[in-house]
Design a protein around this nucleic acid. Structure first.
Lengths: 232, 232, 232, 232
DNA sequence: AATGAATGAGGGTTCATTCAT
DNA sequence: AATGAATGAACCCTCATTCAT
């Protein structure tokens, strides 16, 4: 999104560096709580010079969102088009998603936290892109259900489970190399896809046991908001 | 400056109402981007009167965190002490957690997003409480592994999967009654606990197929950050 | 200055106690920087109740000024009327002044610092009273000059020297009993009255030496605001 | 947030002008009672622009204190090092002190009144500097006593008398040229040094007369706080 | 004799942004 | 390509005071 008509050769490089610094700061302190001054300081520029590169604070946010969304969507589209088993495609998509989460951790923080700070158009566009990404996953899950690899489920809920599992990772993972995308993807997919597969497993009487427990202990209220101090 | 020693009967009621309004606003716009003026306006009070009730903006944040953390932790402790199978206890905990997420949705938004805005002591205390909650889940998972109901897994990663699945729900669920805690808990636990159970399932050759795919298609780079524009 | 038409017996007592507490706080933190809340807290009253006793914050200031000015002026008038030597009367006045400074130290702080916070009428009245006090001293000094005990001086400057010496004491004296009014008065008067007395003393060539020093060292500039870094 | 790294040529000039205006206002109304808005108005700047120059309100106070303390201390050190008679040095110091009082009258008001508004570090530093200044005077007085020019006195009390006499001047002197530093210094030093000199003078029976007066008139209570309304 | 609640103006400070140079 | 200076709105918070009860 170049604004002034003509730029020198270093323009885009410096611009990208500023966005990097901004992502770090936004991730650490939040978009709203980070001042333009701090960004300028981190990038070694005065406020005035900063505006030559960025146009506005919200632009920075837009760019950071794009840096996550654009490669993610591009890769998701390519994976979706591969001519292999849908479960395998989901597994590849899982790893691609985790890969970007782990390597652009601060961008992801901003992406997950501050997308609601975007104004009208920017926000709409982002939500449309997220919708497309979710659609790709839903389609793959539907394919796996159609082929009998996964049991029949609410497809939207299955997609949401997939995203819950992956997208919340940014909250606790640290960029210290202790976790890598391949390992996490293996583990997540082992859990999810076993849980999604067709044959019922040995824990399937769990819901009956829940009901029985509630019948036998009607006095125990486990609703967190119901008080329940009586048993103390 | 401690709150005045005595309050009228309406004080606590109004105070709670203010916290409610603040939670709505913080959830919608973020803590840092919500002004004290807006909160006053939403509560029908002038700024001065507002401060008679709240003491400080951060206090509001603390109260909102407490309204999530206190009942959650209390219920989690009670469930952990029940003398039933650990898998059943995890299922009950799942439902309790989802119950609070669904019914205090805006509090959860704030809880998940803005805890980092808390200053020193408040933050430390909150993190300690979160640690305790995570410990309870870890212990239940460890019990289930010891009893052979779940296979041996990295206990921390299992706990994190459990929390990923549940805690990300606030991002997409709407308080419109379309989803209820019991249903979501059943579905989440069906997926997770089948995935966690001891016997390997029929998708266990997935990882071999991943490796094979990569061998056979070394030219396909699926790393989102590796460029990969060549195929465009 | 009782305001409500009828009071119970404890009214004036409590009122005086409030003024005491206010004087302490004003002395320690300054009038403008002390809040009504603090005064209420120190007096064990809520803000509302406080106003029942004091009427306004400025009223407190007026009362504190009066507590200094009224006894001081009354005593000064009595001393002035005594039929003894003016130097003796000055000595008695000195001790009376120091006595009130030492025993109402916090009132004096407020009296010296914050009289300029008084609004129109209150301020005018206070300045008139101060003028009367200064007049009493001036008259005594003039009497002493007329009688030949003191040499002829600018009477206003002599009075100002007398007041400088005494009134600045509050800045460094502590209410710990290390200094007492009698001792300080003896010392101050020994210095002042010897200095004021008629006969020139052995240091009277000092001014000549000052002039000679300046002639002999014209390059040494001792004016604090003249730079003078040259000699560094 | 340090001041921006570079400033234009007018920056320091404008900054000094702002400090001037602030000193006037602080002197007239007191530091705590003067608003940032007023300062901005007096300097012809909006609040935002004002902060570009000053950083904080307390900074202004610090600068004003420095403008008094720095030249005063520098000059005092230079005078102390002169190789002339200690009494002459005291006389030069007296004039330097009065010179700064008369020419920076509003700064002195602030210096004397509002140093207690300084926060921790700034206050500590200032008090240390005041201590050094007092030490210089004490040393000169001690030298004069050792050389026999002054009689033996409590050295701290002698220093305090010197400072009382000089430092209280700001309370009544007007910047109208009616008084000048040389004249005041001559008069003050004439009084003080004659009072301090070795030989006892003709008023030295004053204390005996005080005692005799009290014996002969035991019914006359001259303590300002002892009631004494009886004679009214 | 005292309270709890409210007001509204003002406190000091930081904000994102603009623009002439 | 970048700066220093300015703006003006908004920031969170505290103030002295009032008044029905």
């Amino acid at each position: 999104m170049p604004r002034p008509p003509g730029h020198g050769p270093g323009y885009e490089i410096k611009r990208q560096e500023i966005i990097d610094r901004a992502a770090e700061l936004f991730a650490r302190k939040g978009y709203a709580a980070t001042g333009i001054n701090e960004i300028g300081g981190a990038a070694g520029l005065t406020k005035g010079a900063l505006y030559y590169y960025i146009g506005s604070k919200e632009n920075l946010l837009v760019e950071i969102q794009s840096r996550v969304m654009r490669p993610l969507l591009r890769t998701a589209r390519r994976i979706a088009r591969l001519e292999v088993d849908p479960v395998l495609r989901l597994r590849l998509l899982s790893e691609a998603l985790l890969s970007i989460i782990l390597r652009r951790l601060d961008h992801i923080w901003v992406y997950e936290h501050d997308y609601r700070m975007l104004g009208g158009d920017n926000r709409t566009r982002l939500l449309r892109q997220r919708g497309e990404f979710e659609g790709i996953i839903s389609n793959l899950l539907a394919e796996a259900m159609d082929s009998g690899e996964f049991r029949e489920m609410n497809p939207r809920l299955a997609m949401l489970q997939f995203l819950n599992m992956h997208n919340h990772t940014y909250q606790w993972v640290r960029p210290d190399g202790r976790w890598d995308a391949g390992y996490l993807s293996r583990e997540y997919c082992a859990t999810l896809f076993t849980g999604f597969r067709a044959a019922p497993g040995p824990v399937d009487d769990l819901e009956e046991r829940v009901l029985k427990f509630r019948e036998q202990h009607p006095e125990i209220v486990l609703d967190p908001l119901e008080g329940g101090e009586t048993e103390a």
